[in-house]
Design a protein around this nucleic acid. Sequence first.
DNA 1: GATGAATGAGTGTTCATTCAT
DNA 2: GATGAATGAACACTCATTCAT
Lengths: 215, 215, 215, 215
Amino acid sequence: MASKRQAPETKRRIPRQARAAETVAAILEAAAQILEAGGLAAFTTNAVAERAGVSIGTLYQYFVDKNALLLALARQEMGAALVEVGRALSGVDDPTPESRVRAMVRAMVHAFRGRSRARKAVVQAILAQGLGIEMVAPINGFIANIGSVIGQDAQRLPPLEPEQIFVLSRALLGAIRAAVMEEQPFLQSRGFENELVRLVMSYIDSIAHEAGRPL
Amino acid sequence: MASKRQAPETKRRIPRQARAAETVAAILEAAAQILEAGGLAAFTTNAVAERAGVSIGTLYQYFVDKNALLLALARQEMGAALVEVGRALSGVDDPTPESRVRAMVRAMVHAFRGRSRARKAVVQAILAQGLGIEMVAPINGFIANIGSVIGQDAQRLPPLEPEQIFVLSRALLGAIRAAVMEEQPFLQSRGFENELVRLVMSYIDSIAHEAGRPL
Amino acid sequence: MASKRQAPETKRRIPRQARAAETVAAILEAAAQILEAGGLAAFTTNAVAERAGVSIGTLYQYFVDKNALLLALARQEMGAALVEVGRALSGVDDPTPESRVRAMVRAMVHAFRGRSRARKAVVQAILAQGLGIEMVAPINGFIANIGSVIGQDAQRLPPLEPEQIFVLSRALLGAIRAAVMEEQPFLQSRGFENELVRLVMSYIDSIAHEAGRPL
Amino acid sequence: MASKRQAPETKRRIPRQARAAETVAAILEAAAQILEAGGLAAFTTNAVAERAGVSIGTLYQYFVDKNALLLALARQEMGAALVEVGRALSGVDDPTPESRVRAMVRAMVHAFRGRSRARKAVVQAILAQGLGIEMVAPINGFIANIGSVIGQDAQRLPPLEPEQIFVLSRALLGAIRAAVMEEQPFLQSRGFENELVRLVMSYIDSIAHEAGRPL
DNA sequence: GATGAATGAGTGTTCATTCAT
DNA sequence: GATGAATGAACACTCATTCAT
């Protein structure tokens, strides 16, 4: 696992045929299952290949190394999460700022829900390689546009400073991540959701006030 | 690395002689250096022993296993950080709520400053074992008492709900941690500090308002 | 070497290809040679692998751990011995009780002959794990049926008590084992054989007399 | 643990003072306890020293190496056993041949003061070094003189042949040893004792008959 | 004489990765 | 394309033994 920092290659061969795509899917699914069941410690290439019903050689035909497999899994999961968040935002008919934030928060919490051990392991591994930046980038984007997420008209909120985007996105993710990692029972409770919403709203509110444009 | 969740034993032998104490210190220092230089991947017991100028056997005379060494290092670092935070809080003569929060935030940021790779690695390792809870417990405590940290008189702010303590502490730590992990250049900037303060203050403020007792 | 008492698993992978079978054979042969040459002290997995001309990884592909290798060797050797004893018994055309016992004794003595250091080591190791019971079980069975081995008609001798089976089988094995271990020159002499036969016959005789059914 | 075959040196320093004798005794007692509690696997020099309440350095002042300690323990226990056997023989007032044999058998079974696990471990270790011969020599002597042990007048039984001495002593020891090693519950039962007596008596009987001098 | 901190060779075992079939 | 037997560097950890204090 040498450390390649810049968006390392993941696939060795891009599957062009249906069967190959199935194989890749099977391997990723197996990887998730292994991770879910035994955490990072059980995540060996041999174990993944076996569970996928594929020979170890085949696994290496599609993933350059163990790391690439992990990354591919992480990307797949992040993508799914983002799709969900997007869907949540577009599906809100009550356009109160708060209700939009709530929708986003809920989507994020749920994205981190099922298969939590697998997610935990993936997160760990990603962090361990300093690839966290790449992974949170999309979330970052969402937060950056939070002005438009919130306001009916964009003028109301001045564009956020980079530090503000950073603090808000990482604070939110950090709280959710901690709840997942520590396996907190209230992860999906209403109370927890409320507090996350409060975290975002009060922060935005403070900025708006400072700019003389209270929400 | 078997998983003992509750404050696992760290030391195998308590050093009674001066030489032994030096040895332990040397090992911990070496561990920090190795972590700093090569991250978790380079952190092998043999490497640590070698850098400490000590035989591998000696290392194992003082630490039951690799994990215990890591934990001991984590505890030492956490302890130092907490001491700093405590000192910061008691050394503020301008007792504005905001200035007290600012002191705390600044202490935390600085605690995460020097030797950041080592700290990063320690944090990762701790998280990887689900011992994050133990490690953040003291921070948790600080936040839990944030009412008294902030208010001149404690009645002003109702005691925080567990979820609120959780969200606030993890959000703050999460933002700082991310800045460390991603090696953000603004880590020690005034602007970043301001936003962290805002994060805490606005959240508290929101709670206070809800309780009908604005700060 | 954890202690699993009940017929522990020995093989990790059942060899399906010809090459694999050869590899396993080579490893077992190497193990026997190492044991023969240097006793239990020289019996390290690395040494065995090296002598087998195989990598250490390959060894572990076929044997879960060091112990499993030892056990597999023991079983192989025991099996060979038993086959010999069985063949000896069925090949006696003079059906005198004594001549049948003599055939059995002779087979046992010969079974413990060649590669005695290896056998010695194996025996030691097996005993050291409390797996002696499993290993002597077949011999036990032979002795248990000694009535039928000896008598033309089975009624003549009452079925032996467990303690009697135990004493007779262990006494016989003990005498042979000691001769092997101490490398006694008379191991394969006629005189020694005679005395072993006497040991068995007189004991059985005594039981038969007691039961009022002298042979 | 290099193999020195001929009655290796055991003591490094012969204790001349009372305190030293106590120390040696404490170490041997600790060794026996460790062996009894955890078998050969737990038998480390450090563990013994600790349980004896002595520093590891002190242990090495009295025993050249680990092996010497084991040997000293074995000799001590063998000596004790022999004394007991002797006492048993001289203390029988019913001078039937059988009752004398029974006394001997019982003393042998009860050897090692009921510390059967320790006994097992010592036996294992002794065997593993090929020092079994040295250890059984005294027993051999007893059996060699079994004619006098048994008969009121020595003429009755012709002197035993070397093979006969060997077979009888090893058979008896083998049966007892196996019961110890396999931790058979009937080890100290009357039934087991009876069968051991039968083993010896019937064998002797057979020889006597052959010589035309039935007991 | 006693202590116990220090030593370090040696062991069993894992697992990512290769490549002949 | 797929297979899976083989590889071997690397690691955590043990414990008999030494020797400065």
